[in-house]
């Protein structure tokens, strides 16, 4: 399976997660969002960029509650709650946002 991004075909797994994290570019998130009938706004990008930074530092995708808490600390309490994050990413902030960010599926996501 693959997705077309800027003329290149990038491999994804059966759930749509990017096979190789290093192939990620912003266009990947845009294309994945389009497949979900979503248009990414600055608010989405704030979370996507946060996830990429988190992964860079800790080498894992955070569990949803860890993400929520950390977003609250970094971007303010009005954003650090599941209501806000689920509105942005209705398929689940950890799963959907991680996917757009090119990260593997979070450990502990059941």
């Amino acid at each position: 399976m693959g997705i077309e991004v800027n003329g290149k075909t990038l491999e994804v797994d059966e759930e749509g997660y990017l096979a190789d994290l290093n192939q990620w570019e912003p266009g990947v998130a845009d294309i994945m969002a389009k497949l979900d009938d979503t248009t990414l706004t600055d608010a989405h990008w704030e979370v996507i960029n946060f996830l990429r930074e988190y992964y860079e530092e800790y080498q894992i995708a955070p569990a949803v509650r860890v993400l929520t808490k950390a977003i609250g600390k970094k971007l303010g309490a009005d954003k650090g709650n599941s209501k806000y994050l689920y509105e942005l990413f209705p398929y689940g902030p950890a799963k959907q946002a991680c996917k757009y960010a090119g990260l593997p599926k979070p450990t502990g996501c059941v």
Binding site: E57, P62, A63
Partner: peptide, 9 residues
């Protein structure tokens, strides 16, 4: 580096 994430968990 993941051991350093444990605090957040």
């Amino acid at each position: 580096p993941t051991y350093r994430a444990l605090e957040g968990y």
